[in-house]
Each structure stands twice: as C-alpha cells, then as structure tokens.
Simulated assay, not measured.
Amino acid sequence: MPEKDSPRLQRAEAKRDPTEWHGHRIVTETDLGAVFEAEDDARPHRVSARRVRHGIVLVLLLGLLAAAVYAALALARGDISLGALGASDASPAPTSNCPAGPFDYQDPSAITVNVYNSTPIDGLAGTAAEQLRGRAFAVKDIGNLEVGPTGMTAIIVSGEGGRANAFTVQRTIPESIYVADEREDKSVDVILGSSYKDLVPPEAVDTTPAGLTCAPEEGAATPTPTAP
C-alpha cells in the first residue's frame, strides 16, 4: 500500500488541517460569515415585504375611516335615512298591533285627516275629502297612495296618540280597517279603496266607546306613497 494512502499519513494530514478534528469538520469564522452574509442579503427583501403589507393595511384602514365619516355626514344632512325608505311623513311604516280600546268618540272638528286615493278612480279622494269636511273633519292633505289590498273600502292609519281620532273616523267610514304606524302626532290618514261609496249617514254613526277594527294579521295593509 502506498505511503500516502496509509492511515498513519491520513491522521498526520488531519492533524495539520485546523478545520478538522477527529474526522469532523470544524465550523470556522469564514463559514459563519458566509451564512450571516446570506441572511443579511435576504433581510432587505423581508423588510420590503413587511412594509408593503403595512402599507396595504394602512390604506384599508384609511378607506374605512373615510367611509364612516362620509356616512356620518350623510346622516347628518339627511341624505341617508335609517327608517323605512320610501315612506312619507304622512304615512310612516305601519305596525301590526290592533288596539283594543275602548276609545271615546271625539269631536270631528278637532281631528286632522289626510285623504288618499289608492284606486284608478279619478277624483275619489277629493270627493271623500269634501264629504269629511261636511262632517266637520279638518282635511289637510289630499293625494294618492298604493296599498297591498284591493277592493277594500278604506284603511284608517294613525299613531298611538291618534287612536281615539282614528276610532272616530272609522265609525264614520263603513267597513274600514285600522292600521297603526309610528307617527307622533294625532293626525289620521284615510286611504280609499275601490269599494268606497259614501260615509255612514250622520244619524247612523255609532258613538259608543269601543276598540278599533283591524285587518287580519296576514292581510294587514302596508301603505306606500306614490306620485300624485
């Protein structure tokens, strides 16, 4: 066996190589420098990616803040309403409760009534308004409204404070039904249907205290204003 391949010669060379010890590689300062240099080269890329993510998050937060400020300003100006869209001041969104009363018959001259026509019959609201004025009711608005039911006589609409007034109007209009809404005043809406013909004769009006007559729950009317 050649001298250079002998185990004794290999051990002698290993002793002369400072990077090996008992056949194992010793990590040197040069090796560590190469590793950390590679990590240093990769660090700018990680920092750049982190900055990009932070920038995206900041842009999203600013967008949400701007949207919140815009919505707040729109609410303050009245451009956006949290109530039922499409409802007018005359006819807020109705509710389904039917007040049992009893309610006393009121003086018609103290009751403000708005009269609306839900049919294609021309002049129906004007005719009914004149009839109500003839009974001393204070008619304010006259116009058109759309409602769910068809073929009914009339729908009487009021808020909680106007229930007694609504009772008085209902006793004046035959076969009318009551729908409650959330208005705060005591005004009453009369929404006429195609079955409306006339008021109850003055001598036949029942002034006995009682409750209101409402539509069945599944058929409750939902007035929706339209252009006159």
Rank of each mutant, 00 (worst) to 15 (best):
V157Y: 00
V147L: 08
L124S: 03
G148P: 00
T213H: 11
L82R: 07
A66L: 13
E29C: 07
G159D: 02
A34N: 05
A14T: 08
I173K: 01
P228C: 02
E182K: 15
T150K: 15
D104R: 14
G63Y: 02
D79I: 03
A204Y: 05
P202A: 14
E182Q: 14
D17L: 05
A221D: 11
T224R: 13
G143A: 03
V35L: 10
T207K: 15
A14D: 15
L75K: 10
A215G: 12
P216V: 11
D31E: 03
L58S: 11
T222Q: 13
D41K: 15
N117M: 05
T30D: 09
A221T: 06
R171G: 01
R8E: 15
A87Q: 13
I56R: 07
T172S: 11
T153Y: 02
A71D: 08
Y116Q: 03
K197I: 06
V169E: 01
D104C: 02
L199P: 05
P44I: 04
P209H: 06
P44K: 00
L60I: 11
V27T: 15
T208A: 12
I121V: 13
D107V: 11
D206M: 04
T95Y: 04
D89F: 13
G55M: 02
A210S: 12
G134C: 01
R53L: 13
T153G: 01
A136F: 05
P202C: 01
R163T: 10
G126L: 11
E130L: 15
D79M: 08
A14H: 08
E184N: 08
A128I: 03
G161V: 13
A93C: 03
R163D: 03
R43E: 11
T208D: 04
I111L: 02
V57F: 07
F137I: 10
G83L: 06
G33N: 10
S176K: 06
D104N: 15
N114K: 03
S96T: 09
R25F: 09
I155H: 01
D79S: 12
Y70S: 07
P174F: 06
A204M: 09
R51D: 14
A210H: 05
E218A: 08
A128P: 00
T226W: 04
D189N: 10
V200E: 06
A67P: 02
A14P: 00
F103P: 00
L61N: 08
S194N: 06
A138D: 12
L75G: 06
L61Y: 07
E29R: 14
A204E: 12
E29L: 14
A204G: 04
W21L: 13
Q131W: 14
